[in-house]
């Protein structure tokens, strides 16, 4: 969203940020649809959801929560660093964020791999034998964490672009809209997880 300069306009950072917020709203509503489905089925099949949540490993969930929260802080710190003019520090914080994101994804991979080993994946026969509530729980689990993981990957890409932009000298103390917006996006990923984590892992 740094497209504000076409004609003779100066770059309008406020416009860029407002545009990003609006985009985040659409992301929020994209997940909102899934939260709505979750709410309806949870109300209908609370028992199945309890057993379903019991099958998930709360430990992995907690670790991933901590990882994402810390990464949220490092990306916020990267913005502080760029505002203070220390580009090197900013890059370091971004690298840290990216590493944390990778940890999150690796964790996720093991979690999913384990479930698939148990033949609990969408469309599997083992899943079809479960009672309805549990089946729906797992469908939601895959849909929600899958969409979330996709957003982690997009955020990751944005952060990597930020590093290159800082190195190329396009993002600096005077102009860091891209970094700021990527940061906002990354926080959104965190925000969604803040709700996903208790809803999927904890409510047993």
């Amino acid at each position: 969203m740094t497209n504000s300069s076409s004609h003779a306009h100066p770059v309008d950072n406020e416009a860029g940020k407002l545009g990003m917020w609006l985009f985040l709203f659409t992301e929020f509503f994209l997940f909102g649809g899934l939260f709505l489905v979750y709410a309806v089925f949870r109300a209908k099949f609370s028992d199945g959801f309890h057993t379903g949540a019991n099958d998930l490993n709360a430990m992995i969930g907690t670790i991933n929560t901590v990882v994402l929260l810390v990464s949220s802080m490092t990306v916020a710190m990267a913005i502080t660093a760029i505002q203070k003019g220390s580009n090197q520090k900013a890059i370091l914080f971004l690298v840290a964020t990216i590493l944390l994101a990778l940890v999150f994804m690796i964790n996720k991979y093991f979690e999913w791999a384990h479930k698939i080993e148990l033949h609990l994946f969408p469309g599997s026969e083992a899943l079809q034998t479960l009672e309805r509530g549990e089946l729906l729980f797992f469908s939601l689990y895959y849909m929600m964490t899958g969409l979330h993981a996709l957003h982690v990957i997009i955020g990751l890409t944005l952060l990597i672009i930020c590093i290159f932009q800082i190195k190329a000298g396009n993002t600096h103390k005077g102009q860091y809209l891209l970094l700021e917006n990527s940061g906002l996006y990354w926080h959104l990923v965190d925000l969604i997880w803040i709700f996903l984590f208790p809803l999927l892992y904890l409510l047993t």
Binding site: S6, H7, D12, A15
Partner: peptide, 8 residues
């Protein structure tokens, strides 16, 4: 002179 994000 144009919309806020012409390329978008």
């Amino acid at each position: 002179k144009d919309v806020a994000f012409p390329r978008l």
